[in-house]
């Protein structure tokens, strides 16, 4: 018993000191873990804010680009045509000659027709009337027809929906139309594609849009250097709470699958 007693003292004192330092270590590790988590969360928040800023600046830039385009179209097409018309009217002199009178009438009519066509084209680009009057499918079909007529690209539209598209509200339909417009624009400008397909389908209350082209595709890690067009697409889809997935690889074309829950968002 005499031999055991000093060991008990050591155990008691050692135990107290050990417990004290064990708790200290536990707290230190816990503090470190919590602060590390906080830093990670703050970094994620910063990244999210930066991303939102990028999206916002893309929206502003695209608005600015749109204004410039409308201004240029008005100046170059409508403005020039109206100046020509003014010049023709100014130059015309009363003459009994029927031929020159007919020439004057046909020239002015031609210019007025061109102005009407240009104004229609500009206003269509600003707000597609077909979309408002006849719905998304017809508007997309019309856009595809214009592209097909240009001969640069063959665009196909497949609509397998029953009622999903008709349930879309105006803002969602406009977002879908603008996204498709942007996608087709990107395909024409960058993809070097010959064909593209747009397919609408529905599953329960979800509208599914599949966009594909047979162009040169992109690197799968393209997200780091997204262009304004893609940022615009992302911004519009986020705005209507649509889910999306981009599938692309060099030489494998570009695909974008969008799923949109109609009941939740209408």
């Amino acid at each position: 018993m005499q031999g055991i007693t000093p060991n008990i003292y050591v155990l008691i004192l050692g135990g107290m000191v050990t417990v004290f330092f064990m708790v200290l270590t536990f707290i230190a590790l816990n503090v470190r873990g919590q602060n590390k988590l906080l830093k990670q969360r703050q970094a994620a928040q910063k990244a999210e804010i930066a991303h939102q800023k990028e999206l916002l600046s893309a929206v502003i830039e695209s608005q600015e680009a749109e204004r410039k385009r409308v201004g240029r179209d008005l100046h170059d097409d409508v403005g020039t045509a109206l100046s020509s018309l003014r010049l023709i009217i100014e130059m015309s002199k009363p003459t009994p000659d029927a031929l020159s009178h007919n020439n004057f009438v046909s020239s002015t009519k031609e210019i007025i027709d061109k102005v009407i066509k240009d104004v229609r084209s500009i206003s269509h680009n600003l707000s597609p009337t077909t979309l408002n009057y006849y719905g998304l499918t017809t508007a997309v079909e019309e856009h595809c027809n214009i592209i097909n007529q240009s001969g640069k690209l063959r665009a196909f539209l497949i609509d397998d929906t029953v009622s999903a598209i008709s349930k879309l509200n105006v803002s969602s339909a406009t977002a879908f139309y603008r996204v498709l417009e942007e996608l087709l624009n990107n395909t024409i400008k960058h993809a070097e594609a010959t064909e593209t397909s747009i397919k609408f389908s529905e599953k329960e209350d979800t509208l599914i849009l599949e966009y594909r082209d047979n162009g040169k595709g992109m690197e799968p890690n393209f997200t780091a250097k997204k262009g304004m067009g893609l940022q615009n697409i992302e911004s519009r889809l986020n705005n209507i709470n649509a889910g999306y997935e981009i599938i692309t690889a060099p030489g494998k074309g570009f695909s974008l699958n969008i799923s949109y829950q109609i009941l939740r968002n209408t």
Binding site: I12, G15, M16, V19, F20, M22, V23, L24, F26, I27, N30, V31, Q34, N35, L37, L38, R41
Partner: peptide
């Protein structure tokens, strides 16, 4: 958590209890 561990007053008090009562328990 939305603030560092050290900025929360309750964390310090709780740590005090943990340290003291674990040693005292022994």
């Amino acid at each position: 958590i939305d603030a560092s561990w050290g900025s929360n007053s309750l964390n310090w008090i709780n740590t005090g209890f943990l340290l003291y009562y674990s040693t005292a328990l022994m």
